[in-house]
Write a protein that binds this DNA or RNA. Sequence first.
DNA 1: AGTTAAACCTGGTTGC
DNA 2: TGCAACCAGGTTTAAC
Length: 277
Amino acid sequence: MPELPEVEVTRRGLAGRLRGVTVCAVRLGKPLRWPLGIAPQALQGAAVGEPQRRGKYLWLPLAGGAQPQGRGGLLLHLGMSGALAWLEAAPPPGPHDHFDLVTTHGTLRLTDPRRFGAVQWSPAIDAPPAAARLATLGREPFDPALSAATLHAALRGRSSPIKSVLLGGRVVVGAGNIYACEALYAAGIAPRTPAGRLSRQRCARLLAALRSTLARALELGGSTLRDFHDAHGAAGAFQHEAAVYGRAGQPCRRCGTPIRRAMQGQRATYWCPACQR
DNA sequence: AGTTAAACCTGGTTGC
DNA sequence: TGCAACCAGGTTTAAC
């Protein structure tokens, strides 16, 4: 679930709450995608910093731990079904609670039924292993340096469908299956169009559509299909506004043509065959 | 190098 | 009702 808007909503919900907070303990549940990479007790006494986001990853800085190797931070990913919660009084962990950062002021808890999520310690965001995770990521969608011209140049020569390229995150990060479908609809571009065949003008439309789609999702607190909740337990509302995602067979909100669904690279793609060319 | 398929997991829904 | 098959927000690895 968690695409850029959901991760950013989570970050904003935590921002300001972690100031002056110190780690008391780390509790681990079932294994997640990656090992933590450090002994949990080494993080005891570390001061928690402000969370940062890169793509769909969160970076939580830690400083001044009881042991010098505690310095660094945690790289977190919510996977498909993860959600982070800030709990001032944490109940005992449930069967899907796989990571607790217990602090002096509350507990940061990762709940993730499918366990595609991850938490990994790294000595710095630009040192391994975090750096390796982030190295292949494309541009941030709201990076002012990302323009229609740079997007057009990055897509040149690529034969993959534009939908797959958006999902890949190596050109521009942030769009997952929901927002890739929605942005392509807003841009009027058929998802199977070879990426390298988009004109510069269509790249401009796509970039604007991606930005407006993600911005609208941020306003609505993201999308909650099932598992996602922000740091304070609130669900998102964007799913009620989706124009194509999950609407196979229903009429296009613009022209009435039934929305189509097809598998593309092992993922379901939704589009309007009349509005998207 | 670029593209595509399969794998990682659990739970909910659908269909026989 | 029971059970098998299929589907789901993402990334990583292996195999063309």
